[in-house]
């Protein structure tokens, strides 16, 4: 019997000549909120896709729920709720149709899936748009559809890749509380986000990935080197990005050089 719900050992992954993940190792215990952060291209989405069996590692082992994942038996995915990084949905469907489809893929009846989806949609003010095609939705509304889709089947673990993209501040607050409540009920949440103050506030543990390797791992207080730092500063230090002030100044200089076109 293992304590961890997810175990990654010596995972490596390359795309062509580009090595995206280099010897990735971590485990996740149940009932935790784990923030998985890193610069663009660090390998966050690749990690999530491998945990879902969408990509195979070149090397290393990956276990979920104490078992190595196998493409021949995808039944473990019924215990996972997934929010993809890009809003890959079928735009021509309505939210009702799309969520019913996803619910059925997870083994719910169509009627149950629709009923549950409608109830969740009402809570996030999507009731009026429920029977409209998703193509007419704003970015935030699409994101909410993906979030609802990941929760319909009451999964044990959530893999959320940039779940807060496009959401308004009020909805972000709701989602934060939802995640905390789910964690309190024993669910495990593994998510990535670029909104670092939310990650700092919400996460029991933070894993920082840079250039395919873990550069920090632990609760925020444990990985922070100084007492008065915040996750943004820590992130900049860990990922070797210290020249933001200088870059901003250069940016403004270029924008404002030459004549103004106001009168053109």
């Amino acid at each position: 019997m293992t304590d961890s719900i997810v175990t990654l050992s010596h995972i490596q992954k390359s795309f062509g000549s580009k090595k995206v993940l280099k010897d990735l190792n971590f485990t996740i215990a149940p009932g935790n909120i784990v923030g998985y952060i890193g610069p663009n291209g660090a390998g966050k989405s690749t990690t999530v896709k491998m945990m879902l069996g969408l990509l195979e590692p070149d090397d290393g082992t990956l276990e979920l729920f104490g078992q190595p994942i196998s493409p021949k038996d995808p039944s473990y995915k019924r215990r996972i709720g997934y929010v993809p990084e890009s809003a890959d949905v079928f735009d021509a469907l309505t939210a009702r149709e799309y969520l019913s489809l996803i619910g059925q893929l997870y083994g719910l009846s169509a009627a149950d899936a629709e009923q549950k989806a409608l109830a969740l949609a009402e809570l996030v003010n999507l009731r009026d748009a429920f029977d409209r095609r998703i193509s007419s939705y704003s970015k935030g509304m699409r994101q909410l559809i993906l979030i609802i889709a990941s929760l319909l089947h009451n999964p044990d673990i959530l893999f959320w890749d940039q779940p807060l993209n496009g959401l308004d501040a009020n909805t972000v607050l709701v989602i934060e509380e939802v995640l905390q409540d789910l964690r309190d009920q024993g669910k495990t949440i593994f998510y990535s986000s670029h909104i670092l103050d939310v990650v700092q506030k919400l996460s029991d543990r933070i894993i920082v990935l840079n250039a395919g390797t873990v550069v920090a791992d632990g609760p925020f207080k444990a990985i922070a080197k100084e007492a008065d730092t915040n996750l943004q500063q820590l992130f900049n230090d860990l990922t070797g990005f210290a020249e933001h002030g200088q870059k901003a100044q250069s940016f403004v200089d270029i924008v404002t050089e030459g004549e103004s076109h106001e009168d053109a």
Partner: peptide
């Protein structure tokens, strides 16, 4: 490849 995100990620085998 969209099919994989929608279907394969939700337990549909290859």
């Amino acid at each position: 490849p969209r099919d994989r995100t929608v279907f394969a990620a939700r337990g549909v085998n290859d």
